[in-house]
Amino acid sequence: MYLRHGAFSYLPELTDDEVAAQIRYALGNGWPVSVEYTDDPHPRNVYWELWGLPMFDLAEPDPVLREIQDCRAAFPRHYVRVLAYDARLGRQTTALSFLVQRPGREPGFRLERTEANDRVQRYALRPYATDAPPGARYETP
């Protein structure tokens, strides 16, 4: 299973130079950048843990790259992503989001079906990773 999340998710993993280019693009558009991480990457889980504070008024991507490296070192078995925010409409809008790290093993999701009244069937996605407690979800087997 290979989680598809954010921009560039169907491309090969971005190198650090490519990540720097994307951050440079975001900063060039005046978008503040933040780094987030999680061990529960469910498609509807949009609220990941914030690593540090969002970074405003940067000209170069180097401070963001340092924060990414620090987050990767602190959480080597978590998903890490970069978000760029566009506040031109008077509200916080995600302009760009992409993964910069994923765990070495992604166990995937199971599809659970339940039946309700009148033969109605409902489906839910449950990640196998959440069978383990937080912090131990992506341990190597």
Rank of each mutant, 00 (worst) to 15 (best):
M1R: 09
Y2M: 07
Y2V: 10
L3D: 04
R4P: 00
G6N: 08
S9T: 14
Y10M: 05
Y10R: 08
Y10A: 05
P12W: 03
P12F: 03
T15H: 02
D16I: 06
D16H: 06
D17A: 15
D17G: 09
V19F: 01
A20E: 01
A21R: 14
I23M: 04
Y25T: 07
N29M: 15
W31M: 05
V33Y: 00
S34W: 00
D39Q: 13
D40N: 15
D40E: 14
P43W: 13
N45D: 13
N45R: 15
W51D: 04
F56P: 00
D57F: 09
P61R: 02
D62M: 05
D62S: 08
D70H: 13
R72E: 07
R72P: 03
A74R: 15
A74V: 06
P76A: 10
R77Y: 07
Y79F: 15
V82N: 02
A84E: 00
A84N: 03
A87N: 10
L89M: 09
G90R: 03
Q92V: 13
A95L: 06
S97M: 12
F98W: 13
V100Q: 01
Q101C: 07
G104Q: 08
G104R: 07
R105M: 11
P107R: 11
L111P: 00
E112V: 15
E112S: 10
A116V: 07
N117A: 15
V120D: 03
R122E: 11
R122T: 12
L125F: 13
G135C: 11
A136D: 11
A136T: 11
